Amino acid sequence: MSFPGETVTGTITFITPEAYPHCLWEGKVINIQEGNKIIGYAKVTKVMNELLKIEE
């Protein structure tokens, strides 16, 4: 749980990473949503699954 204005560190796991190949890179900002409402943002600091890393 976090509160408005707080910064937290966490891990995001894709259930089906093969559906999103080569879509992430360090520094990418991702919306965190509850339904259609954006409740926060995540900044990628490390991509651990090689399948998800963008090809450079």
Score class of each variant (00 low, 15 high):
7 T>V: 14
7 T>E: 09
7 T>S: 06
7 T>D: 05
7 T>N: 11
7 T>C: 08
8 V>Y: 02
8 V>Q: 10
8 V>A: 03
9 T>Q: 11
9 T>H: 05
10 G>S: 08
10 G>R: 02
10 G>I: 01
10 G>P: 05
11 T>D: 02
12 I>T: 08
12 I>K: 00
12 I>P: 00
13 T>Y: 06
13 T>N: 07
14 F>K: 00
14 F>W: 04
14 F>D: 04
14 F>N: 04
14 F>I: 01
15 I>K: 12
15 I>F: 14
15 I>N: 12
15 I>H: 05
16 T>D: 14
16 T>L: 12
17 P>Q: 03
17 P>F: 08
17 P>T: 07
17 P>L: 08
18 E>Q: 06
18 E>C: 01
18 E>D: 07
18 E>M: 04
18 E>H: 08
19 A>P: 00
20 Y>S: 11
20 Y>M: 09
20 Y>L: 01
20 Y>D: 05
20 Y>I: 00
21 P>C: 15
21 P>R: 01
21 P>L: 06
23 C>A: 14
23 C>D: 09
23 C>K: 06
23 C>W: 02
23 C>N: 08
24 L>H: 04
24 L>R: 00
24 L>Q: 03
24 L>N: 03
24 L>Y: 06
25 W>G: 05
26 E>W: 07
26 E>R: 13
26 E>M: 12
27 G>P: 11
27 G>S: 14
27 G>N: 11
27 G>F: 06
27 G>R: 07
27 G>I: 08
27 G>W: 03
27 G>V: 15
28 K>E: 11
28 K>P: 00
28 K>N: 08
29 V>P: 06
30 I>L: 15
30 I>K: 11
30 I>P: 03
31 N>G: 10
31 N>D: 14
31 N>I: 06
31 N>L: 13
31 N>R: 11
32 I>G: 03
32 I>E: 02
32 I>A: 12
33 Q>K: 15
33 Q>W: 01
33 Q>M: 10
34 E>N: 12
34 E>K: 11
34 E>R: 08
35 G>T: 09
35 G>H: 03
35 G>D: 03
35 G>R: 11
36 N>P: 05
37 K>P: 00
37 K>H: 06
37 K>A: 05
37 K>T: 12
38 I>T: 14
38 I>A: 07
38 I>W: 01
39 I>C: 15
